[in-house]
Amino acid sequence: MGPLVPQEIIGQDWNMLIAFIIGIGFGFALEQAGFSSSRKLAGLFYGYDTVVLKVFFTAAVTAMLGLLYFSLFGWIDLNLVYVNPTFIWSAIGGGVIMGAGFIIGGFCPGTSVCAAAIGKIDAMIFLAGVVIGIFVFGEGYPLWKEFYNSGNLGNPKISEILGVSGGVMALLVIIAAGIMFWIGEWAEKKFTREEY
């Protein structure tokens, strides 16, 4: 049955409206979680607020399990769901630079859009920075083109690399998430900070 648009059960024309509606849900969930505050986002790295960890892993586990069950019931053809490619060196390099941007800027692109939507000026400036960063990457592309395309492993799933089934992998991720939630709850009690 699904995914509905790639299989033309719903026309391509509707895809943009669907994107807009899904975006509303995305923005609403992020803002309700408190991701519109850099104080809460940065809190993870000092232990006083681990909402990022809890929301991020609950969401990843929910979607992961949802996909597995949908596939099991024949509601979605996983072969038609886009799996991000893995370029091992740029994945690490990009992640490291993004991590630095996260602790310095206090947002990631998606959360800064939510924060800008409710009037946070720091988020609007962060977004301007994001655009500048993308500009620098594109304009200087020949300089890092080789690194960007190095270590191409195709589109592997982590379960294939570890040689386990999707279900076993999901169980491992759930166990890891459970341990991290437990550490998060402990950290929030130990490193409590005043709000500002």
């Binding site: 990009g94 993004m98 996260f102 960063g133 990457f137 960007y148």
Partner: peptide
């Protein structure tokens, strides 16, 4: 915020 944004923008393209 500006510096962090620039880094995140650049890193998001590389990653």
């Amino acid at each position: 915020a500006l510096i962090g944004g620039v880094l995140f923008g650049f890193g998001s393209q590389l990653g």
